[in-house]
Nucleic acid binder design. Sequence first.
DNA 1: GTATTAGGTATGAAAAAAGATACTATTGCA
DNA 2: TGCAATAGTATCTTTTTTCATACCTAATAC
Lengths: 120, 120
Amino acid sequence: MKKDTIAQRQSLILGKNADFDNPMMNALQAIGGKWKLLLLDSIRKECPKRFGELRKELEYITHSTLTAQLRELERDGILVREVFPEVPPRVEYKLTELGKQLIPVMDALCRWGEEYGKQL
Amino acid sequence: MKKDTIAQRQSLILGKNADFDNPMMNALQAIGGKWKLLLLDSIRKECPKRFGELRKELEYITHSTLTAQLRELERDGILVREVFPEVPPRVEYKLTELGKQLIPVMDALCRWGEEYGKQL
DNA sequence: GTATTAGGTATGAAAAAAGATACTATTGCA
DNA sequence: TGCAATAGTATCTTTTTTCATACCTAATAC
């Protein structure tokens, strides 16, 4: 296959046309960002969760980055966004069924993170 | 705490002085790169694995990036590097105990990746 | 009419990650 | 002598990601 830009090659690796035979690639394409697992971990602990609550918890994430990451997770069917037509507005995010299926993964990863933290 | 550079803030988030109370942050600090889980997934399937084999499997990774990622995983105690004093040289990578504890995580993540792939 | 609120968008600049490329070492073999 | 093979390093450039900042929206209270 022709490879013109790096982005195109990336799409082969972690992108939309990812190798369906490699589940790890599929998974990383969806949740492989810097913040995504942190976001999902926070949402699963209190679901639904508001935008502002996420901001507070992920102290150092930027407003615009937070929006971007949430949009991607929504696009990929991992969480849903619900807007309440109030003023001031309220927006809640919660896991979809697919998102909930990530909970065992997050559990396992957290357990490992504790192990890893011990020897840090 | 004073925050001068982005790097310093990052170190608060995902870095060496990460919040030990947040296992997810610990975990992502170690295995959160773009290639790391792909590398580990490949190594766990055939352990030990040679440098050149990794290159072939992760078709699009650069030689120097592969080296860098492997060095970090070694530094973080997730895999060990064994050099065989032959010519041409042979270098094998294998999971440490800590690395092996990642196997359930990778299993869970792959299962999820399959689910996710279905609706892609 | 303007301040407040929560959430969002848009822009350009900065930083981090990854890439391309060229170089090294080793030694048996033609 | 020169080349092949494997693994690695060093340097510079490009790509991607994230940040900083400013601006937008809506209903309500003042």
